[in-house]
Each structure stands twice: as C-alpha cells, then as structure tokens.
Computed example of a mutant assay.
Amino acid sequence: MLFQDNQRVVFIGDSITDCGRRDLYAPFGNGYLSLVRAFVTARQPDTRLTWLNHGISGDTVRDLSARWEQDVVEARPDWLSVMIGINDIWRAFEDQPDQAVPIDEYESTLRALLTRAVEATGCRLILADPYLIEPDRNEPQRAETDRYGKVVASLATEFDAVHVACQEAFDRVLVSSDASDWAEDRIHPNLPGHAVLADAFLNAIETVPSAGE
C-alpha cells in the first residue's frame, strides 16, 4: 500500500465525503472515508497515519476554491484525496443553473486547485470521479456525469495521481442490482453504497507502490 508511517491523509469534497463529520459522526463521518481508514488501519497497524476529513455538504469546485488555503494548503497533506463534481452537475438538473458549474470552469478550477496544492505542499493526489448511480448511460444527468468523470480521469493522468473510478465501481454492481439498493436518490449512498466507494479506493491505493519500492 502507498501510505508511509507518519503521513497526513486529507480528504476534501462534498456531502459524500462529509457524511456527518461535523456533528453526529465526528471527526471522520460515517461514509467511505471512515471505511477506508478502518481497513487501512487494520491492514497496516504499524503505520501511524493522521486522517483529516474536510468534506462539506453541498460544495462545488467554487466552494473548494474559497476554502482551499485553509483546508488544504494549511493542512499540509502528504496525500490529498479529492472527490468533487456531483453538485456541480446536478444543480443544472434541479432548476438551479446559476449554481451549476459548467464543465470548462470545473476543469480549469480543479486544475488550478490541484496545482496550488502540489506546489505548496508537495503532496501526492488521489482523484475520485463524480458519479450517478444510474445504469442508463443515455439518461441526461448520467451522460453529463460521465463527461465530468472524463475530466477527472484526464487530470489524474496529468498529475500522476491515483485515480478512483467511482462510476465504474457502481456500474459493476448495477449489472446485477438496482440503483435503489445503493442509494435512495442515486447520489447519497447507504452503507453498502459507501462500501462500493471504499472498495474502489482500496483497490486503487493498493495497486500503487509506496516510495522506494
């Protein structure tokens, strides 16, 4: 696994990352991040890591930009995990087009934020796709989500980041299940849905060698 002793691992994103980390489920939330932390700890009990959850429900890349210095740069991560984009997309489908983030702005803003983080802290990146738990790839919101996911995949290559293919992970389970098995609203996962995300994260990070290997 890629993490080394005494590293700081910072996660930032929207409600999927937040998951109550600021109230009932402080400090890690009760979602995929907590599951990833638990399994990494179990598999590497001799590796002491500091985990920080900086997800905030409702965020888009615009919101991340406003808090990037405090929540990322000042946190001094060794590893930074970013999952953002769901709100950027769906608000265009929920009669809030002024709050949706067009794909060009999404890409340029995310690239600038990642560049700032790497240049300021020297961190390595984990980039997770936005997703929609919807099997019909021609459904308009799903099709748009796939476009934004391609942006994340491209940025992962550009920044030599670990890429977590969240949409692909849900597509795999949707072959033999219904979307409602994983989330009531196609977006906010139940516990099995968060396990799908956590499994995708673990598979991604376990295939990356740590420094020196």
Results as ranks from 00 to 15, higher is better:
residue 211 A to R: 09
residue 83 M to I: 01
residue 107 E to A: 08
residue 10 V to R: 02
residue 102 P to L: 12
residue 124 R to H: 10
residue 130 P to W: 03
residue 170 F to H: 10
residue 91 R to C: 06
residue 183 A to P: 15
residue 98 D to Q: 15
residue 149 G to T: 01
residue 122 G to V: 07
residue 210 S to G: 14
residue 75 A to N: 06
residue 145 T to A: 13
residue 124 R to A: 01
residue 32 Y to M: 07
residue 57 S to V: 13
residue 60 T to Y: 00
residue 203 N to P: 09
residue 107 E to P: 06
residue 91 R to N: 04
residue 69 E to V: 14
residue 144 E to G: 05
residue 26 A to Q: 06
residue 168 E to L: 15
residue 122 G to Q: 04
residue 128 A to H: 06
residue 3 F to E: 05
residue 104 D to W: 05
residue 60 T to D: 01
residue 56 I to W: 04
residue 210 S to V: 13
residue 123 C to W: 00
residue 153 A to P: 08
residue 120 A to P: 06
residue 182 W to I: 10
residue 199 D to H: 15
residue 177 S to F: 09
residue 206 E to P: 03
residue 83 M to L: 12
residue 163 H to D: 12
residue 43 R to E: 13
residue 45 P to D: 09
residue 187 I to W: 03
residue 118 V to A: 04
residue 132 L to N: 14
residue 169 A to H: 06
residue 18 D to P: 04
residue 139 E to T: 02
residue 24 L to Y: 15
residue 43 R to V: 10
residue 159 F to Y: 11
residue 92 A to V: 06
residue 150 K to F: 09
residue 166 C to W: 15
residue 69 E to G: 10
residue 169 A to L: 08
residue 63 D to C: 07
residue 35 L to M: 11
residue 12 I to G: 07
residue 143 A to I: 06
residue 19 C to W: 03
residue 166 C to G: 12
residue 137 R to E: 12
residue 109 T to K: 06
residue 198 A to F: 07
residue 185 D to N: 08
residue 191 L to C: 13
residue 134 E to K: 11
residue 151 V to E: 00
residue 110 L to K: 05
residue 171 D to S: 09
residue 101 V to A: 02
residue 86 I to M: 13
residue 1 M to W: 15
residue 142 R to Q: 06
residue 212 G to M: 02
residue 71 D to T: 02
residue 198 A to Y: 11
residue 104 D to T: 10
residue 108 S to P: 02
residue 211 A to M: 14
residue 62 R to P: 00
residue 50 T to F: 07
residue 28 F to P: 14
residue 130 P to I: 02
residue 80 L to D: 02
residue 94 E to M: 13
residue 22 R to W: 01
residue 207 T to S: 15
residue 78 D to V: 05
residue 183 A to M: 10
residue 201 F to S: 01
residue 116 R to Q: 11
residue 61 V to Y: 00
residue 28 F to E: 12
residue 130 P to A: 00
residue 55 G to Q: 05
residue 155 L to T: 03
residue 87 N to I: 06
residue 127 L to V: 00
residue 117 A to G: 09
residue 137 R to S: 12
residue 200 A to E: 09
residue 120 A to F: 01
residue 192 P to W: 08
residue 27 P to T: 11
residue 47 T to Y: 14
residue 92 A to F: 06
residue 169 A to F: 06
residue 45 P to W: 14
residue 35 L to C: 04
residue 36 V to E: 00
residue 174 L to S: 14
residue 161 A to Y: 10
residue 190 N to T: 12
residue 174 L to P: 13
residue 86 I to L: 08
residue 55 G to E: 14
residue 69 E to Y: 14
residue 95 D to F: 00
residue 61 V to G: 02
residue 207 T to I: 12
residue 183 A to H: 07
residue 157 T to E: 10
residue 75 A to P: 05
residue 95 D to A: 03
residue 149 G to S: 06
residue 135 P to C: 10
residue 21 R to M: 02
residue 117 A to D: 10
residue 178 D to P: 15
residue 162 V to R: 13
residue 75 A to K: 06
residue 139 E to F: 04
residue 183 A to F: 07
residue 150 K to T: 11
